[in-house]
Structure formats: C-alpha cells, structure tokens
Design a protein around this nucleic acid. Sequence first.
DNA 1: ACCTGAACACCGTTCAAGT
DNA 2: ACCTGAACACCGTTCAAGT
Lengths: 209, 209
Amino acid sequence: MATVRRKQPERKARGDYHHGNLRRALLDAAVVILAQHGTGAFTLREAARRVGVDHRAAYRHFADREGLLAVVAQEAYEVLVSEVKEELAAAGPSARERLLAIAVAYTRFAIREPGRYWVIAGPYAYQRYPETDAVVDEAFALIVTEVARGIERGEVLAGDQIELAAWLWSAMHGLTHLILIRRVRVRRDLLADFTRKMIGRSLDGVLRS
Amino acid sequence: MATVRRKQPERKARGDYHHGNLRRALLDAAVVILAQHGTGAFTLREAARRVGVDHRAAYRHFADREGLLAVVAQEAYEVLVSEVKEELAAAGPSARERLLAIAVAYTRFAIREPGRYWVIAGPYAYQRYPETDAVVDEAFALIVTEVARGIERGEVLAGDQIELAAWLWSAMHGLTHLILIRRVRVRRDLLADFTRKMIGRSLDGVLRS
DNA sequence: ACCTGAACACCGTTCAAGT
DNA sequence: ACCTGAACACCGTTCAAGT
C-alpha cells in the first residue's frame, strides 16, 4: 500500500501560504497524468498546474523533472513488490505455482496502472537514483529467491539463479508489453488465466521430444 | 538494407534553393539523434538543424513529429524483417534452429541500433499509420509462419499459432529490453550465444518432471 | 513545389525576491 | 522553509509570404 491516501489535517489553518504536502501532491498528480496520457506527455508544469502551485515550487522537492519521475518509479516498484508478496503469501509451495504467482501479480499491476508501469519499464536506468535502484533490486531479489527455492526443491533445472530469474523477468515483461500495446488482447477478468498459460509455456517449454 | 546511403547527384546545381531529398535527410538525422540521445530527446527542430533547413520545412514531408517517428519505425521494421529473413535463410530446417535464428537476428538488431529499437518497441500503437502497421504485421507474420511450420513438423506443441508466436515475440522482446537497460550485461561477441541460451530455455522449459 | 520569417502557446530551469 | 515573478533558451505547430 504505497499510494498513501493522505487524509491528515493538512496542517494548514491561518491565512495559509504553504501547501502542506506539495511533494506528495505532485507525485500523485504525476501518476494521474502518466496514466491518462503516457510517459511522454508528463510535464512538471502540468503537474504543478493540477496541484495549484507555480511550477517553480516543484524544485523545492525534486532536483528536476527526471528526479520526480525517479521517485514515481520508486513508489511504483514498492507497490509492485508488496502485491507480489501478497500473491506469494497466498500461493502453494510448488515452484510452478510460486513463479506463476509472481507473473500474475506483475501483469495485474501493469494493466491496472499502465502509467506507473511505463515509468518502471521505460528505457531508463535508475543507477543515478540509489533509492529507486534499491527497490528495483528488491523486486528482482524476490524472483531470485523463488527460483533458488525451486532449484533446492528439485523442481527447477539447476543453473545460474540470477540468469534464470532474469529469464523469468524478461518473459513477464515481454508479455506485459504485448498486452499494453494491444498486440494481444485479453479481457481483464481473464488476465490471470492468460498470464498463467503464457508464462506456464515458458516454464514448461513448447518443443516436443 | 534500408539505410539508403544516397550518393546520388543530389540534383541541385544552379543557385540552388531546394534541398534535394529533405525527407530522406530528416529521417537519417532522426535515427542518429535517437541512437545518441534516446527517444525522448528527439525534436523536429534538432533534426532540421542538423540537416541545415528551417524546422518548418519538415512539415512538407511529414504531418507532424509523430508522423516522422512513424516512418522511422516503419523503416526500422523493414531492416529488422530483412535481417530476420537473412538469418532464416542460413538456418537449418528444425523448428528449434529456426526460432532461435529469429531471436538472434532480433537481439542483434536491437543492440546494434538501440535508437531504432526504442522506437519500434516503445509504448506506441501505430494503427493510425497504415504503412507502419503493415510492416509490423509482416514482422509478426514471419514468426507465425515458423511456428506453424514447427507444428506441422511435429516439433512444436500443437496450439494456437498466433498465441505461440506472440509468446515467442514477448520472450525476445523481454530479453532485449533487459539487455538494453543493462540489467543483464552481455559482451557483444557473445550476444548470439546468450540469446540462444535464454530463448532456448523458453523453448525447452525450465521445470523438471 | 519547396522553403522561411514571424508568431503563438507551450516546455524545463535559473535568479532574485517575497512571506 | 516554502513559494513566486520575470526571464532564458528551448519546444511543436500555424499563417502568410517568398522563389
């Protein structure tokens, strides 16, 4: 639950010149813009406009436009990670079930919040933003852990954990991308089943013999 | 070979007011900008500047910025398709070999020309641009054909051809993305082997039993 | 046909100043 | 501390005009 619903007193009472929580408000506005109009359309000025402050105020809270997007990405990963964890908590012990649980949480998140997804899946490298980079690593570590567990249980082929995890990640990402650009169409209530089918194919293989 | 090297007489002689082939020049400039600075950095004005014309001249050849990028995407797909065909021509008859040949051509193209790749793999839907849309379909049809052939030969599991082709496409795309954002690092001379290994896993499966 | 000057409504970012 | 006015160097796009 990283989308804080903030219904605090807003600590603004007399005359009121300050905004309360401008940082939070700008981040929320950014997510709305990204979801509605895609990554390219996001501008600092538009976000500030929606919040009702001068665009210059954003620089109190973010180094620049890219810095704000890095925080959006960070929070997006946090939400994704927490949802993957929930799905894993509900999944059984078999490697197949657990790896598919990760994939289901992944596609569900992306289709529900395409704006956030495009930011985390964009052509950006967040090495310059340590906190964003850390949560990316955490997300990846979740996959590695489950792959390692599967190898231990003898259910996943022996091999480099990291490489197998990267392989699963790329399978999930590729599928998600195809759905989002509408090259593949899936009814939302069938998304989990479709994900299981497609990622299941990668887990099981498609070649005979 | 779609990157025309144009060394024609340039048909500009006396006084010379017209440019010769502005359309071509703008497209080439766009690819250079995209490769150097990424999709977001591309501007019509910068492309015009490099070519040495007023930015307004671009509107003689393209409806707008998006229209120019759609043509860049179209040509990128054309190059990709021709390289996939070459790789297929050199590949043996087995489904495994042929599907891996497609994947090898795909990652090689993307890593060699990231600018072009980000345009074709971006969050764009080119339905509004029939010619671009057509070559996207052609690219996809190549995969479908090979999947169908594999099913006929009894080497690929029976199943919906389209869905299996989408599955392979998503696997290739996901892998390419991971390499480009440098989450996975591969030496260029090992790229083909690495691609074969990773996509091979998707073809063969990673689960025991 | 092909190209441009001038203009409009936008950007991100900086400086100096206001409370 | 937090916010803004004015300014700068950019955008994409349009209109009216030049050869």
